[in-house]
Design a protein around this nucleic acid. Sequence first.
DNA 1: TAGCATTGGATTGTCAACAATATGAAGCAG
DNA 2: CTGCTTCATATTGTTGACAATCCAATGCTA
Lengths: 233, 233
Amino acid sequence: MEQAKRQTISTLDAGSRTLADRVCHQLKDDIITGRLSQGSKIVEEDLAREHGVSRGPLREAIRRLEAMHLVQRIPHAGARVVTLSEKMMSDVYSVREALEGMSARLAAEFIKPKEVDELWLLLEQHEKNIDETEGTVYFQREGDVDFHIRIAQASQNQLLVKSLSSELYQLIRMCRYRTAKAPSRPTKALGEHRQIVDAISRRDGELAEILMRRHISGAWQIARELLLKDHHD
Amino acid sequence: MEQAKRQTISTLDAGSRTLADRVCHQLKDDIITGRLSQGSKIVEEDLAREHGVSRGPLREAIRRLEAMHLVQRIPHAGARVVTLSEKMMSDVYSVREALEGMSARLAAEFIKPKEVDELWLLLEQHEKNIDETEGTVYFQREGDVDFHIRIAQASQNQLLVKSLSSELYQLIRMCRYRTAKAPSRPTKALGEHRQIVDAISRRDGELAEILMRRHISGAWQIARELLLKDHHD
DNA sequence: TAGCATTGGATTGTCAACAATATGAAGCAG
DNA sequence: CTGCTTCATATTGTTGACAATCCAATGCTA
């Protein structure tokens, strides 16, 4: 009954037991929100002083950010914040499509009854949030990520969960942040989520995969159009 | 004309510019070949002394191995070599299927004419190697990895290349090492590779993806049967 | 003036000592 | 005898100083 405490994934919690954890968490947010601008160079000593830690923990933090694809590092030459070009974002969505498509397929095969119930419950909460907040879809976005992560967990594939939640998740958040001004279409997304859960609960893996891939590739189309519009202003 | 020198991926070359690079490379091989047995605990100071470096570079090496999913680390509790259970291997092959399926699909869309020629050339060399070595299929295995990496590169998706070659590649090698006693079926694999390249060169992404996924899931079936047999001896 | 070697400064890589934390054994209460 | 507490030890986390490397500005030569 106390396994819930141990279950928290280290990359998600902010309470961080170690200095490197805390600095990594802060830097991660700084990069995603743009406080550390894209392409800017990272100087270890400066950042270390700025965050009140030694270079050791900071180096570890940077290495973890590298694993999240948030910084690019070259030996002896230093690290730079990743530049999120349209091409890069396209790459991210492609990988997402592949990984989450497999997620949905496996989830249909291996999901536990309890997890199905929890998914339906989650979607109900989403619907309420949409009705209440109407225009303010920020919470919906967080919930959206939650939804996708839960599907991955339902697949019972630990490597998939790790790849998505630890390695790709932050990059996805960064993409979202750039196209956050979108009016979005939470209702449509919710409907698609429902279809996916429905397919999964009916154990139709093939359909679940197709729906999930269409869902993600659709999201990319919307995001892409937004980027093009931004280019024209 | 000198871009070829710079093109070498840091995670692949053994000549390593930094101590952490070299130690990481050595540890990686130690884990894959079993010199560091699965599940064994990793003590920083011991390994550092053993490899003639300080704890600093060794810690970095371990963190990189963690990013390759070769070791699991718990704060303040230390790191252990990953245990490659059948379930774990199954997870790896599922992720491979998703990622490399997308690779093939994108390659069909974006591959350059020059790369198509190089792929056909590669397959010819494989055929020669099979004829010459007959039973000794070790080189084929190396070449096989080369084939899959090249498809990823042909997809023009940098994230895909990185995910496969840096993060998953070593885990795949480790799986292979466990099922290496297999008589394998290089000729059959070669035929499947041909089909895949054929589909790609005809720009049929959908088919290329299906063929690639079937190819990988087939390889897993073979490997799985081998594991079951091993269990019975 | 253009091109190249040199050198100074900045930045990363490496080291060894110190502090914080967890693991396991021993002792004690119940 | 069992379960908990306490404490010693081993191991990881952190720090600041030192060495190796790279980058750019400077001056020299043709």
